[in-house]
Amino acid sequence: MGPAGTGRVRNREIQMLKITELVKRYGSGDPVLKNLNLTIEGESVVSIIGSSGAGKSTLLRCINRLVEPSSGSIVLNGTELTKLRGRELRAARRKIGMVFQGFNLVDRLTVMENVQSGRLGYISTWAAVMRRYPKEDIRRAYELMERVGIAHYADKRADELSGGERQRVGVVRALMQKPEILLADEPTASLDPKTSEQIMGLLRDLAGELKLPVLINIHNVAEAKEYTDRIVGMRYGRIIFDDLPEKLDQDAMDKIYSGSPAADRAGTPGEMREAS
C-alpha cells in the first residue's frame, strides 16, 4: 500500500474554508483581528506570516474555536463554525486537525496513545479508557507513523522522543482525525533548522498525498517561500499581503515587518536584507 493510500480518497467536492469579516477582541481592548477576510480552496498549502502579535495564532484558533470569535463568519465546507455549540462543535472540530508549536503531547502516554487521541471524538468512552482501539484505527496509525518515520516508537513514552519526533507524533495525531483541513501554529518554531525543514517538507508532501488544505503560521519567511503555495501576510490584525510566494518582494516584506524587531525576521533570506 502506498503512502497516498493512507488518506481518505476525496473525490467529492473541493475543500473550502471561507472566513468573512472576522473580528476578535480580547476583553475590552482593541480588536486583535479586524474585519478579516480569507478564503482557502482546494489542497493548497498556505502560510501566514507576520511579526509576533500580528494575530496569526488568534486567527488559527478562531477557526477551531479554541478562541471565540467576536463576530464574523467562518464556513468550512458548508458548515458555519462560529455558531456551533456543544456536541456540534465537537463534531466540527473532528474535521479540523491542529499541530502546535509546543507539540502539546501527553508526555506520560505512549506514542500510540497520543496518536489515537486524535480519534477520541469517534470512539466510545469505554474503548478510549480501556485502550481498545478499533482495528482500522490501529492500522491507520501504523501506516501514518510509518509514513513519517516513527512507527518503531509506538510503545515509547512521548517524553522519550526528540523534538522532531514529537512533532511527527503531533502531525500524525492531527491526521488520525481524517481532517478536512489542517492548521499548524508555528509547527517548527521549537525545532532546530534541519528538523524544521523536514517537518515543513512533510507537511507539504502530506497535503499533496491526502489532498488536504494546510494552513501554517510561520515565523520563518524562507521556509514559507520554499514549502508553501501561497503566502498571507498579516499585520495588526489585518491581511496586507496575499499572493504567490514569488510575489513576496522586499517591498511587501517591509510592509509586513516594518518597525518590528529584527528578531521577528529570523530566517529572512540574506539577499533580501542586503537589498534594503
Binding site: M98, E113, L120, A128
Partner: peptide, 16 residues
Amino acid sequence: EALEATGASRFKIIAY
C-alpha cells in the same frame, strides 16, 4: 487544549 481541538468530549479529555 490539543485534545479539545480534536473534538474529544470532556470525559475523554480528562482520561487522556
